[in-house]
Design a binder for these strands. Sequence first.
DNA 1: TAGATTGTTAATCGATTAACAATC
DNA 2: TAGATTGTTAATCGATTAACAATC
Lengths: 215, 215
Amino acid sequence: MEKKISSAVIKRLPRYYRYLSELLDKGIDKISSQELSRRMHVTASQIRQDFNNFGGFGQQGYGYNVEVLRNEIGRILGLDKQHFVIIIGAGNLGQALANYGGFEKRGFLISGIFDSNPDKVGKTVGENTVMDMSELSSFVKGHTVDIAALTIPKSAAAGVAATLMDMGVRAFWNFAATDLNLPDNAAVENVHLAESLMSLSYNMINLSENTSEDI
Amino acid sequence: MEKKISSAVIKRLPRYYRYLSELLDKGIDKISSQELSRRMHVTASQIRQDFNNFGGFGQQGYGYNVEVLRNEIGRILGLDKQHFVIIIGAGNLGQALANYGGFEKRGFLISGIFDSNPDKVGKTVGENTVMDMSELSSFVKGHTVDIAALTIPKSAAAGVAATLMDMGVRAFWNFAATDLNLPDNAAVENVHLAESLMSLSYNMINLSENTSEDI
DNA sequence: TAGATTGTTAATCGATTAACAATC
DNA sequence: TAGATTGTTAATCGATTAACAATC
């Protein structure tokens, strides 16, 4: 019944959340779409359209209350609840994610990290001790697991994702350079770093071709 | 004079490159837009439109030669040339990027890594030894630096980026949770992991609400 | 030649922007 | 009340998809 929100809108929400959090830190308690437009470099019209997908958070003639708006967007993104995240793959990237404290601040708690390499099993990474992949099944049965971050080689990713689906995990943060092709009742967010770097490369090349001709 | 390619197209190119590379590895030397459509889950029409932004790589009645097409896309993305990348910030993420060998395979060579923390300076990370930030200026003057990866706190990002711009660096792979707002003669690719995780959270939540009602 | 498939134009769809009435 | 700014409809723009003539 509710109208489907486009993914373009969803991807903008975390950025709004970030700006509103910064305004709040600065002690600014009111903002208009026009002023937010100026700061974020998006149109005021888009800001109002985006927010109105979720209901009227503002007040005519006044603007938006920063704290209310921030909390509403946080709630929409699920930041008002705790989510348990496991990391599959204790390589460089898996360890970096586990060590980074910033996710917990937003309610994403790293509750387990797994690897199939015996050299890594038992190692301490952040607050966690690396478990063997053979322990994954019993761990997922005994604990709430909302999200699985896949920091494993692409050859292993589809298999691990399918196994986790069978165990009831429905959200995958996929760092492997492959497409997971999971059924519709799973959520997948891809972070393809090599592809990101290639886009940057393209934009860099096409920058140097038209050297400051339109400034 | 050349028509501007939309960023939607650019972001799809690395994925085409990946699929074509995999086809090549499998020894498949010819592919039609229809067959590629089936594999990649995008429309054949979009595939042909995308490729034709850059010229006719196919042959009517036949399809596309996989190797030719892959190499053309690689060339468009700049993968036919070597690019020198420095990493600013030797924290978890900076180290993970420096240790990951996959970028060099695509022509992105990590040629330096910097940190302002004396405890990290001198440490070996991948093939590199962490240098102090005070050495950054002389390093950039003495070496080719195409891309700077910023894996530093957001409070430091804008300043470091501005400094690097002054030294002539024009491409920034930004992992800091902030917008850089650089002039038009710079290329910026943002990787905002916390925001990526928030999008996943949204999609996960909205999954569980309509449990398998449209399968 | 007949069949297949591209390259490209036209149609459609969806997202962004503009405009303005509602209202605080 | 007058001024400001939202919420929302309408217009525009751009991206995607469909269709088909060109051609291998």
